[in-house]
Structure formats: C-alpha cells, structure tokens
C-alpha cells in the first residue's frame, strides 16, 4: 500500500510553470529520492505536500486520505536545521509533541528516550549553538521523527555539511534507518547520495519540474558506504546522468 501519494500536481507562480503534472508514490518504510538541480521546484513540491502551499491541480494522499492543503500531517526537515537557538536541544526536539498537546515534562521524557538511538546522548541540556553542524542535523531529524513516525520529508538535509561530515552522516543515517523504518521522501541534488540512500529515485527536470524517469536501486539493505565503490553503483550513476542530460 502507498503511504504517501502525490497525484498529478501542477503549480505555477506568476504564470511560470514550476511543477508540471508530478506524480510520485512512497510505500511504507521506503526511502525515495527526488533528484534534480537546485531551484527546480523540488521545495515547492515539499511545501505542497506539507500543506503550506496549495497546488493549482492535483492532490496529495496520505494513507489514501486526501490531505491536500492541510498542514499538520507531514513534516519536513531542511538544509537549515531551524533549531530554535533559545531552546535546549531537548526542548527543540519536544516541540512537535507540545504542539500535539502533550505536557512539557512528558514531552521531554519521551523525546529523551530517542536521543541514544539518534546518537545524540548527552546533548539534551545543550543549546543548539553548542553543537556541531552534523549533530544539529541529527537533532533536526529527530524532531521531524517526533512529529511523525511514518512519513518524513527531507529537503537536502545534508547538503550544507562538508564532505567528511556528510559521509559520516550518511553512515549514521543508514544505521538509523534500520532502527526506525521511517518512510522518507528525500530531496537532493547529489547523485551519489541519492544512489547510496534510496530504494527508488525520481528524476525531476528543471523549469518546469517534471518527472523524467524513475530508477530502482536494487542493492539490499543494510547498505554500507562500500556500495559507493562498486560497478553497480557506477552503472546507476551513468544511467541517471544520461537521463538528466537528455532532459536538458
């Protein structure tokens, strides 16, 4: 069954078509990437899915229920961690629970339980400014996870990090994914990242954003970073580059 389904979404801003008839689906526990150049309407699509923008055409279904134009169902995480500087890490992570009406103490406790699983142990009482970029992204992901245990939208979450930190974040993320089974829609412009992390990849063309191909990555989970250096990996990469080039 499809966890999340986006059907025939179109959206224009000031007569400029940004998204053209985009349809994608996300199954339970799957990680699906949306790969395309920056500024190609990917973030617009995320805003539509999370209910912050309304599409000109099309609908968004979560568990077969129409959630088009409704916020409060699916949350997202951006390249900017958006941790609130005046709250401790623990309180930042607990925000989604507070918004759902949980008491502060209970929310903190519940959030704290997952700190170890996300590799954040010992940072509960710290302020975001005291954390490194990688740790902040972990905290932001945990916050997204606290909001919804089934679907998360990640919009270039690791793209602001340096290569080494990014690599260790990928390793960490692959590990976390095994534990938490989150259905994830992942925006990226990094082809290697998409191949390494995804079950499927949708390729999105630029202006207007249109799906130009879908690639299934058959490599089994759990994956290791070694996958990056295999011939299969390279052939996926070649296929993707060819498709993207053709679309130009």
């Amino acid at each position: 069954m499809n966890k999340l389904e986006v059907k025939n979404i179109s959206k224009s801003f000031d007569d400029k078509l940004v998204l053209k008839d985009v349809s994608i689906s996300l199954r339970q526990g799957e990680l699906v990437s949306l790969l395309g150049v920056s500024g190609g309407g990917k973030s617009t699509l995320f805003n539509i899915i999370s209910g912050l923008l309304s599409p000109d055409k099309g609908e968004v279904l979560l568990d077969d229920k129409d959630i088009t134009n409704e916020s409060g169902h699916v949350s997202y995480m951006l390249q900017k961690d958006l941790l609130l500087p005046y709250k401790t890490v623990e309180d930042n992570v607990a925000i989604p629970l507070l918004l759902k009406g949980m008491k502060k103490k209970e929310a903190r406790k519940k959030a704290s339980e997952l700190f170890a699983a996300f590799g954040l142990n010992g940072t509960q009482k710290n302020y975001p400014a005291e954390l490194s970029g990688g740790m902040r992204q972990r905290a932001a992901l945990l916050r997204t996870y606290m909001f919804s245990q089934d679907v998360a939208l990640l919009d270039e979450p690791f793209s602001a990090l340096d290569t080494l930190t990014k690599n260790s974040m990928h390793k960490w993320y692959l590990g976390v994914m095994e534990k938490i089974k989150l259905s994830t829609l992942f925006i990226t412009h990094d082809i290697d990242e998409a191949i390494l992390l995804s079950d499927r990849i949708y390729l999105l063309s630029n202006s207007p954003g249109e799906i130009i191909g879908e690639i299934v990555i058959k490599e089994k989970r759990p994956r290791s970073e070694e996958f990056n250096f295999t011939p299969e990996f390279l052939s996926y990469k070649r296929e993707i580059l060819a498709l993207l080039k053709k679309a130009r």
Binding site: N47, S50, G51, L52, S71, G72, H73, V74, S75, Y76, L78, K80, L82, L84, I95, P96, L98, L99, K100, F147
Partner: peptide, 19 residues
Amino acid sequence: DAIGLLRSMGANRFRIFCH
C-alpha cells in the same frame, strides 16, 4: 522558515507566537 516548519506541524498562530 521556522514559522513554516511549525505550521507544517499544525501549529496555530498562538503557538507560533509562544514558540
């Protein structure tokens, strides 16, 4: 962006004000 994020989590104006 932070306001957008909280809105996506279903926060109303009062909550956005407080948080």
